[in-house]
Design a protein around this nucleic acid. Structure first.
Length: 427
RNA sequence: GGAGUGAUGGCCGAGUAGGUCGAAGGCGCUCGCCUGCUAAGCGAGUAUACGGGCAAAACCCGUAUCGAGGGUUCGAAUCCCUCUCACUCCGCCA
């Protein structure tokens, strides 16, 4: 959520910022008009309340002394009615203002490149060597089916399309990757391991910015204000919601493992096969709550924390900077890590690392205090995948595949897998 | 799921025949005094949000906040309704 007071002071800055995000700048004028109406109504109702408060004190005093106060009471009844009416419009205007503020996107950091769509994202660096195959590399779903380690068909029977069931060493690979990622981020990068609930309430989803605008991307529990979390970002960022943290606690660094549920409305036809786009996948999510002045440095280190996993797993990838046109609604700046998938010959997103500045903190009322007696300030929040497990499985299968159909396990993962190779199952 | 009890400031804890209560008292914390050091003692201070005074800071004024929301009333921490949460007992379960 944007700061209404800043918008009042520098409307032009916000108009420019919002139009970079594709919002009609006249929204700002509309917003300021409602804000002005709200404030004038508020000033008036507060004036009336002040009148009422002093009058009520007088009435109390008179009654205590046995004097007649019925005239005052009669007069105050009118004031009270006026207050009631005006209070209603103050509330309506405020609700309207909040709704508008909640649905406005964050504005991009000046360093973010302009661009209309993902076509204009900027690749920053390419890391690792792509494997050279002396044979035609197979897509991961074929490898997985041949090895009998992921069952796509039966998952569709048991649940529905775009669900998967891992089996045997596939299931173990999922577990091994999650354990490896959590161990790495907690032991090497200083994160605190978290295991959240996979269901969050609507207030939390408003806090992170998924509601009110993106409700149709999530699975909602019928008849309840609960949603299956689309990412562990929701519970982790909301963990300290409505609290004032001591500055010494910052930066807070959480590494949370969870399933992520995406209804992916409107994505029909894209990535219909394999592990890339499914309704439920597992992910280790990194969340940071930091001092405002540090958040861009923290974003850089967050990207590296996520990239560490790809480095350790010897997977080739690139880092790209997201342009304004592809930047999500909540983010001020974002980098994606894209892993190489040889069968398709493309890079695919495997981690997305973003700074939200105080956009989420303001919604979630997530603050800190620099010193005793200091004013509470909003923290800056960041998050990034470290990494998405399903896509990592896909990358390991495709990059590690061998001519005989077996798959080589990255060295770092061998202790977790207990084997260096996933062999074709003996028929 | 059934029955009961409760929810007050950073913490503990007063406060219900509605009236000057943002809220006694204590603890903690901050500053000052005192003091070989520490402790004790003495004095002062110590919530948040929003609006206004101003373009800002300090400061001042106003409004709101005693779990949340609504209601009664000139006036609600105190009365009524709904909800949420916590605890205890019973039931059930991993």
């Amino acid at each position: 959520m944007l700061d209404i007071r800043s918008i009042r002071q520098e409307p032009d800055k916000y108009k420019a910022g919002l139009s970079r995000k594709g919002v009609d700048p006249s929204k700002v004028d509309e917003l300021l008009q409602i804000d002005a109406d709200w404030r004038s109504a508020l000033t008036e109702v507060e004036r009336l309340k002040s009148v009422r408060n002093t009058a009520s004190e007088n009435i109390g005093r008179k009654k205590k002394q046995g004097e007649d106060a019925s005239a005052d009471i009669k007069q105050m009844k009118e004031v009270s009615d006026a207050i009631k009416a005006l209070d209603g419009s103050v509330r309506d205007l405020d609700a309207k203002l909040q709704d508008m503020l909640l649905s406005l996107p964050n504005i991009a950091h000046p360093s973010v490149p302009d661009g209309a769509s993902e076509e204009e994202n900027v690749p920053l660096r390419y890391i690792g060597d792509k494997p050279n195959f002396s044979f035609e590399p197979k897509p991961h779903w074929e490898i997985a089916s041949d090895l009998d380690i992921v069952d796509f068909e039966r998952a569709t029977k048991v649940t529905g399309t775009r669900f998967v069931i891992y089996k045997g060493l596939g299931a173990k690979l999922e577990r091994a990757l999650a354990a490896f990622m959590l161990d790495y981020q907690t032991e090497k990068n200083g994160y605190t391991e978290m295991f959240p609930a996979f269901i969050a309430n609507d207030t939390s989803l408003i806090g992170t910015g998924n509601l009110p605008k993106f409700g149709d991307e999530m699975f909602k529990l019928e008849g309840l204000p609960y949603y299956l979390i689309p990412t562990a970002e929701i519970p982790l960022t909301n963990y300290y919601r409505d609290e004032i943290l001591e500055a010494s606690l910052l930066p807070v660094k959480f590494a949370g493992y969870s399933s992520s549920f995406r209804s992916e409305a409107g994505s029909a036809g894209k990535d219909t096969r394999g592990l890339i786009r499914v309704h439920q996948f597992q992910k280790v999510e990194l969340v940071k709550l930091v001092l405002p002045e540090n958040s861009y440095d923290e974003l850089e280190s967050l990207v590296q924390d996520a990239a560490d996993i790809l480095d350790a797993l010897e997977l080739p990838y690139r880092v790209i900077e997201i342009c304004t046109g592809d930047l999500g609604s909540k983010e001020t700046k974002k980098y994606d890590l894209e892993v190489w998938l040889p069968a398709a010959g493309t890079y695919r997103e495997i981690s997305s690392c973003s700074n939200f500045e105080d956009y989420q903190a303001r919604r979630a009322n997530l603050r800190f205090r620099r010193e005793d007696g200091g004013k509470p300030e909003f923290v800056h929040t960041l998050n990034g995948s470290g990494l998405a497990v399903g896509r990592t499985v896909a990358a390991i299968l495709e990059n590690g595949q061998q001519e005989d159909g077996s798959v080589r396990i990255p060295k770092a993962l061998v202790p977790y897998m207990g084997t260096e190779v996933i062999e074709r199952r003996k028929a």
